[in-house]
């Protein structure tokens, strides 16, 4: 690989754009989420600040910036501050191999999806560190739940993606998009419905969202692993959660929904439309389904999703061998 100034400039611009995307996404999604929650629960949602309450998220983030950062007694000082940083910054890397448009990939790498899966592990680690370093029983319980949940749901998630990788024969996200067609019936969603379903369930669990938000179940654990975080510490966890949601939505769009390919004209708009549809779906089920119990959560994974994804992988491999 030739090292050149242009290459570094490209990566730098990409990282800055990704930061802008992450922050903008968090502000928009907070508003959308609260309005959608209001609509589903038959209440108005935010409506005081700005027209239709649109400035509510900005005011909230100002409040977070101004809040005092509070460190609990006997907390592990270094790890307490390392955790939110470790939650936020690896997510920047995760967006690098995502093909937003035909020529709009920050870093074209042959092992794109492996990079995403590798650095996604830091999210779990940061949750664990945050919960442990807070010296808070709710924090530790939340962290313990976070790890057993993430470790469990990572397996069907990877196996579901692996079925698509088998089909496309590549780990490069752009090539996976290229293997699909422009029309909805040419997308992987049609030939891999089971993998799509498994991925959809696992992504909700991996991003710790309701109905699988047990690491931060507020009725039992106050706020789980980030109970003791205030101000920017909490804001970084919060940003990381929304960025992770956005990431899994983009990966979903790339793997199952044809990425930047769409009817009439291919382009980055299709990626964004599809990713935000998945995002809206995540928000929608959060306010529709009640939270599962922890044993139910683990049973769904180990007794249903894992055997189903293995079966799916097996059938995919056999069909590929027979056909091609």
């Amino acid at each position: 690989m030739e090292l050149s100034l242009l290459y570094f400039v490209k990566i730098l611009v990409a990282v800055l754009a990704i930061i802008a995307l992450m922050v903008g996404n968090a502000i928009v999604m907070v508003y959308v989420e609260r309005k959608a929650a209001g609509f589903i629960q038959r209440r108005p949602g935010p409506y005081e600040v700005g027209p239709w309450g649109t400035l509510q998220a900005i005011v909230d983030s100002m409040k977070l910036l101004a809040k005092q950062i509070f460190v609990p007694a006997n907390a592990d000082y270094i790890l307490f501050f390392l955790a939110p940083i470790l939650a936020f910054f690896p997510v920047l890397l995760l967006f690098l191999p995502i093909p937003f448009g035909p020529y709009l990939t920050s870093w074209e790498t042959p092992d794109g999806i492996i990079l995403i899966l590798a650095f996604a592990g830091f999210g779990v680690l940061s949750n664990l560190l945050g919960g442990w370093a807070s010296n808070n029983k709710y924090g530790v319980l939340g962290a313990a739940r976070a790890v057993s949940q993430s470790i469990a749901y990572e397996i069907p998630l990877i196996l579901a993606l692996l079925a698509v990788i088998y089909q496309a024969g590549t780990l490069n996200l752009s090539e996976i998009v290229e293997a699909q067609g422009s029309w909805p019936w040419q997308w992987n969603l049609v030939c891999q419905p089971l993998a799509f379903f498994i991925y959809l369930v696992s992504l909700v669990a991996e991003t710790n969202r309701a109905p699988f938000d047990l690491p931060e179940a507020e009725s039992e654990l106050t706020a789980g692993f980030h109970t003791e975080y205030s101000g920017m510490g909490f804001a970084l966890f919060f940003l990381a959660e929304y960025a992770n949601m956005l990431l899994v939505s983009f990966v979903c769009a790339t793997f199952f929904l044809g990425g930047y390919k769409g009817p009439i004209l291919d382009g980055f708009w299709w990626t964004f439309i599809k990713a935000y549809l998945v995002m809206f779906f995540i928000v929608w089920i959060r306010w529709t389904f009640p939270r599962v119990r922890f044993d139910q959560l683990l049973n769904i994974n180990w007794k249903w999703l894992l055997p189903l994804s293995l079966l799916n992988l097996w059938v995919t491999a056999i069909v590929i061998k027979v056909i091609g």
Partner: peptide, 8 residues
């Protein structure tokens, strides 16, 4: 992603 988290 796996070993360290499990050790933890």
């Amino acid at each position: 992603g796996a070993i360290c988290v499990l050790v933890f």
